[in-house]
Structures are given as C-alpha cells and as structure tokens.
Design a protein around this nucleic acid. Structure first.
Lengths: 344, 344
DNA sequence: TTGTACGCGTTATCAA
DNA sequence: TTGATAACGCGTACAA
C-alpha cells in the first residue's frame, strides 16, 4: 500500500554516517569531503531518494503549494485560467490544489478552511456568485496571507487583483453594434452582485450615451442563473412583448448570446440581418456556430499566468518589503464575426 | 506573511495543561474531565484552532490528498472528469492536486515524481499521447501504490481502470450512419498509441463487417495532432482526391468532426444531405453548431466519480485485503442530431 | 485524570 | 569534516 521511499535516515544508516551529513552532502553544503559526498549521492541515486515534501513543509513552514478556488471547472474561461495557473506554478516548482465551489458560498468557506489548514503558501480565488460577504477572505488579508483575486474581484482595500477591462470591452462591443446600424440594443446582464456584471452594464450605458442615445431601463435584464435556456426564455419574451422590438442583443456572456440567437431564430428572424448579436468571453463554441458569434475575448490564460506570478511574488517577498495592493486590468479584444455584421 | 494559526501548544500553554491533554480533549478521548474539555474546546474555538494538516500527514503518513494527472485542462471532456473527481474527493474530505502534462511524456514523468514526494495517498491518471513506455507507473504499481487509470488506460496487468466502451460507441455510431443510407464512410482516427483510438477503429471496422461491407484501408486516416485545422486539411484532400468520394465521416472526436464539417461545406457539399458526420465525446459546441453534430457522448463526470471512488477504496482498504485489478467500462450514448439525419 | 517522552523526515545550530 | 540535538505540530504508549 505504501511506497517504500528511502529517507535520509536509511542512507545514513547504510553508510554509517549521521543524517545531518547526508543532508548536507545531498545539498552540496561546503565542508563535506568529496568522498562522503560521492558515496551519499551514489546511494541516494540508487535508492531513488526523493526528499519528503511533507517533512520539508513542516520544517520550513512552506509547502510550495498554492490553492486555487474557482466556481466551476467545466467552464471554458475558468479552465483556461487554470491552465495558465498550472503553467506558471509548474515552472516555479509549485503544486496546485484545486477546489471548485459550484457557485456555493458555504462550500467556498469550507474550501478556504481546509486549504488553509493544508498550509498552502498562497491562494488564488475567483469567488462564487453567492458571495456577498467577504469576511472569510478578510481574515486572511488582515494576516497578510498571500491572496490574489482574479476575474471576479472584490471591492476591498489592500487586495491584489487581476481582472479584465470589462467596461471597455463592453463599450467597444456596443459601439460596434451601433456602427453596424443597429438601433435598439438589448442587454442581457450578468448576476448583479458580480462587479464584472456592473462594469459590463456601465460599458453598455456609456456606449449609448456617447452615441447620444437614450438609456432605456426596459432594455436590460439580468440572467442570474446563466444557462442558455434562461436567456432563450428572456429574449423570446422580450421580442414578443416589447412595443418596439430590439434589433440587437449584447449579452454578458456567450452562453446567453447563444440562447438569444436561438430565440431570435425560432421567432423567424435572421441573424445578423434582422438582429445583431454580441457575446462575451469567446467560449470555444462561439466561433463554431452559424453564424459565428461576435464576442469580447478575455485573455483567460494570461489572467491565470499573471495572477500566479503576482501571487508568487507576494509569497517570496521579504517580510519587511512593503506590500503593494494593485489591480491589474488586462485588455479584452473584440472578435468581430458573422452574428453582428449587418453591413458588408 | 504567515498566518498566525494557533497550535495545540498555544492552547496548552494558555491553559497550563500539557499538549497531550489538549489533543485528547479536542478529540473527545475518554478519561478527560468535563471541565478541562470544556475549557480547551472553548479556547480552541476562540483562537479558531485548525489542526495542521501537514503535521498530521507526517505523523500518520497519510495526507488526505490525491493527485490527478491529466493531458489538458482546457478540454471539455477532461474538465468534466476533473469536476467528477473533485466532487467525490471533496465529499470524502480529500484534497486534489492537479497537474497537466500538455501531452508531454517528460512532463508526465516529472509530475509523477513531484506529486509522489508530496506524499499523496493515491493517483488518478490519464496519460499523454506521447506515453508508450509505462515504467514510471510500473514502479508505483509494483509497490501497490493506489493508482487508477481513466479514459486512456494501459494494457498492464494488475491495474485498476475506468474507461468507456469506445468500441461499442464507435460501432453504434457507424451503424447509425449505415442505417441512414450512407454508403462510403470515412474514419478520422485518433493517435495510434492510444487504446481508445484502436477501440474506436475496431468498432468502425466491425460495424462495416456486420453490414457486409468491405473495409477499405484508404478510408481511414489518423489525426495525431487533434486540431480542427488538421482534420479540415485531411478531409479537404480526401474529398478532392478520392476516386469514389466518401459520403460520410466518422471522426474519433468532435473537434475533428467540426473540421470535417467545415471542409465539406467549403467544398459546396451539404450536411447531412450530401455528407453525414458523426463525432465522439459530445463537446459543448457540438450541439450548438449548424447542423448540430451527432456524437457519441462519454459520461465524463461519471468517469471522474467512479475512478475516484475506486481510488479511495484502494487507499482505505486494509493492508491484508486482497487487491483486485479491474477495468470498469462505462456505457456511451449516441446522441443523434442533425449532421447525420439523411432520412427524415 | 493528566503528564512525559518519542517519532514522523528534515534541517539549522552548536559542539567536537 | 562530522555528529548530536532540537525543532516544526501532532498523536499516543507509557508512566504517574
């Protein structure tokens, strides 16, 4: 059942030296005879010796492990972020412990708890849709525990955050719809407690304003659940009941955009001639549907990389170094595709 | 920088008792006075005491952590498996350390190494496309270290595996194409060293045989890379150059199917009227493209769950219990969609 | 009912 | 150049 892994003691015993000598020999400490060093290394090699990381953690109070807490793994954007995290962690000799919360606050709290008692060196987190109270993070922050928020970032002082410029991305997307000649643009918004939803909504509003259009509150509806069916339902209803039917939809994510497209098509309208559609996130499917969906791509991999780099920097900084809260905002990119090209 | 986590010692000192008393009080050992127990628990609560998992690991040689090594995180099927793994692990109080190999053998080997020195209790693995030599796993197997292979499973004795019935899934898919009246079915196969590729190919062959059709070796081509572009290229070439143009494509995965569909369309052929297409895996996008792609769905979540259940069983079995190698094969399901419906 | 001592594997410190 | 010892945090056999 157990791996008969050799320890320093085994080597010491076999060579009739003390374990401290073995330890030093293995780490090329000065003041060890060539001969001893050779013998130790030889035997270590032969026994396939690997230092016990758990003992090291205990000794050094450092585990070379970081925790990642994420709402969902089965999500194109988040899995991309994880990939970026894993790359940087691996390159720096760190392990990654992964927890998914399934958007549940209680699970998020319990994950923080267990992960912390596992002595991780730092934490990367994108909090759940349910999270409105941040005291379980505040404790950590107060203790100067290294923690980086990504994508969904809180409005807390003294935090390190990595996110994308949701505001500009949304604004650019809506301006593009306006440029294409769409008149009445409906916005399928995200959950209200997420800052990213607010930012995208703000971008939508300001794009309208800068084109001298009225903001019409009936042209915005929130999608708290986030399924394709939800947005299908909303859009179907809106398009049937509105006095003035919208001729474009800007959705806060691609799933919602896909639902909107299906709804519009099922009402016998054509995309993009009758209705223009733009999504957010560049999910994999969005380029493969017909017509392909114009979307605002977020650099998920880069977010993961950058967040991890910042976290490692926090972990490895000297105790006395000043702590610098920062919010890094990465650029989005509007990928114009068929679903919004009214003009040719 | 560090979390000022309270330890048993802190509590002991504050209460003027020995740490063993505290330890026992916290764990409701018999033979502790009610009064002491109360005081200890009270203070532990107040100090937000959490046992140090690292110290526990060292003490017990058990970490309540399992390792997961996977080719890629950004992959619908694998991320679904991870999700299933995470659920079962979480429910049983286990942590998950995640490593992705990016389909690289050397990275796979180094991941096994670091993860093992982290004293994980068991390992879940789907090996890389490059892996043809299994000695880095054989070592573990020989030591009776708990390890479960999933999806991509090796032909090794004494292993525990969870996979899907690729053979039957493929056979059913090809039979469906035959039923729909397609005559010449091309097979885009997966990498040759993966058993799943072989099984799917066998299913393809046997479906033909059972319908009394000749197997034509020129009607099979392998996609070692696995990108949409690769299959686009292959199918374009095949459809232009074949003496008798195929009228259906069975692809070993949905990405390849999508590439095939794009290729076929760009040649001016219609799907499904002129060419039928079936994929494998039920990636998220496959239901959202036009026409939606018929595909063989694999129960990714279930695979993750089942593999983890088996692993935990291995981990927690008594030393003397017999070890039972097993290969669990989960059923696939053919999801018939527009891309293969010639008949109405 | 409670305390002492030891060990899990490693390394830092001090002594030889 | 090497060895003995203590410590990281915890659990437990043994002693009191």
């Amino acid at each position: 059942m157990k791996l008969g892994q050799a320890t320093i003691k085994d080597i010491a015993k076999a060579l009739n030296v003390s374990s401290s000598t073995v330890s030093r020999a293995l780490k090329d400490y000065p003041g060890i005879s060539k001969e001893t060093k050779r013998k130790v290394k030889e035997l270590a090699e032969k026994l396939n010796y690997r230092p016990n990381a758990v003992a090291l953690s205990l000794r050094k109070s450092k585990s070379f492990t970081i925790g990642v807490i994420i709402p969902e793994v089965v999500h194109f954007f988040f899995s991309t972020v994880i990939s970026g995290i894993e790359e940087i962690a691996f390159a720096n000799g760190y392990n990654v412990i992964l927890c998914q919360t399934n958007e549940s606050l209680s699970r998020e709290m319990s994950s923080v708890d267990t992960i912390i008692s596992n002595q991780i060196d730092g934490l990367l987190i994108s909090y759940s849709k349910e999270t409105t109270d941040f005291s379980h993070f505040q404790k950590l922050i107060d203790h100067n525990f290294p923690i980086v928020f990504f994508d969904r970032v809180p409005e807390l002082p003294n935090t390190v955050n990595v996110t994308v410029d949701d505001y500009s991305g949304a604004k650019e997307a809506v301006k593009h719809l306006i440029d294409q000649g769409y008149q009445k643009i409906f916005h399928l918004a995200g959950p209200k407690n997420l800052l990213i939803s607010t930012h995208r909504l703000d971008g939508y509003k300001d794009a309208l304003k800068e084109s001298n259009r009225e903001f019409d509150p009936t042209m915005v509806e929130s999608c708290p659940i986030g399924t394709e069916e939800e947005s299908f339902g909303i859009i179907t209803k809106v398009f049937q009941e509105s006095d003035v039917r919208p001729d474009a939809v800007f959705a806060a994510n691609d799933i919602a955009a896909a639902g909107a497209m299906r709804a519009v098509k099922s009402l016998g309208l054509r995309v993009p001639q009758d209705v223009g559609i733009v999504g957010f996130s560049n999910w994999q499917f969005s380029s493969m549907v017909d017509p392909p969906i114009t979307t605002v791509s977020q650099p998920g991999f880069k977010i993961g990389e950058r967040a991890t780099q910042l976290l490692l920097k926090m972990i490895n900084k000297k105790e006395e170094d000043p702590f610098e809260p920062i919010t890094e905002i990465l650029e989005t990119e509007l990928l114009v595709r068929g679903s919004s090209l009214k003009k040719d």
